[in-house]
Nucleic acid binder design. Structure first.
Length: 271
DNA sequence: AAGGTTACCTGCCCGC
DNA sequence: TGCGGGCAGGTAACCT
């Protein structure tokens, strides 16, 4: 489900659990691509939530024993605080806190994960050690991007979704950022001019910030931990608009498959 | 080594 | 109504 804006929105909505203590935990014991450690519950029980942060598309819930409850939502994951779902079939984590609140991690497709990692080992962990820069930091700038893109022949859109280059940009925001920078997603990365790279870098930041401000994008049933929906989907210029007219020039929006993913763009506005 | 393809899962929507 | 196919916001293992 979520890209950076959705994960950031969910993270922010979890602030009510800061300072609360974990009193009980129920897991589904269903198989995930990354298994939680055997002593997962022991690592969490009786610990206080110290703070909540985000790295890439991972939600990090920092505990008083220096362990971090790590949650990734994959394509279909949700994190809910005191919200009842129609079906609890895919609840994999139910965490009860000492204020009677319940945190739920629900994920039908199980492309996400939950685990506990010691704070001191996080940056060495296989899930984190190859992650690139955060797009909303100064480390993500035209110079950084140029030095990587100049050597690469892949379509620019594929590289925007490569988390070893820049994290958090998924299939929606890659298409939306390229539209706003007037760059075709099919372009060879190394063919981009420095001016185009600057525009793209800027577009990515603006689109992500705008989406965060809108509470993320709700496609099917994306909900914040409060159960509320996001609104950025109403601002999509190209994503999912295959065959519809470009809002700028009225040309039909195209859907191409790039590295196995649907990719939307306006062939007139984006060159 | 880079880039494309496939697999991992369930649910939903569409056409027959 | 039922079934099969295709698709879905992510990631990583695997092939050229």
């Amino acid at each position: 489900m979520p890209e950076l804006p959705e994960v950031e929105t969910i993270k922010n909505s979890l602030s009510p659990i800061i300072g609360k203590k974990i009193v009980s935990i129920k897991t589904s014991d269903k198989k995930f691509r990354v298994a939680a450690p055997k002593n997962f519950k022991d690592l969490l029980i009786n610990q206080n939530v110290v703070k909540i942060s985000r790295r890439s598309k991972y939600i990090l819930i920092h505990l008083s024993n220096d362990y971090i409850l790590v949650i990734h939502l994959g394509m279909s994951g949700k994190v809910l605080l005191d919200v009842k779902l129609k079906s609890t079939t895919h609840n994999h984590l139910e965490i009860n806190l000492n204020n009677d609140a319940t945190l739920i991690f629900n994920d039908p497709r199980r492309f996400g994960l939950y685990t506990a990692i010691n704070q001191s080992e996080l940056h060495l962990h296989k899930l984190f050690k190859n992650l690139g820069v955060e797009p909303l930091t100064d480390g993500f700038n035209p110079n950084y991007l140029y030095n990587i893109l100049k050597k690469r022949a892949a379509p620019i859109k594929s590289l925007l979704m490569d988390a070893s280059i820049v994290v958090g940009v998924g299939n929606i925001y890659a298409s939306e950022s390229l539209f706003r920078a007037n760059i075709s997603p099919l372009r060879e990365a190394k063919s981009l001019t420095t001016a185009e790279i600057s525009a793209l870098c800027n577009s990515i930041k603006i689109v992500l910030l705008d989406a965060i401000e809108s509470g993320g994008s709700t496609l099917k049933d994306y909900v914040k931990s409060t159960g509320d929906v996001g609104y950025f989907q109403h601002k999509f210029q190209v994503y999912g608009r295959n065959g519809k007219k470009c809002y700028i020039c009225k040309t039909q929006i195209l859907n191409n498959r790039i590295a196995g993913r649907s990719t939307f763009h306006c062939p007139t506005c984006q060159l």
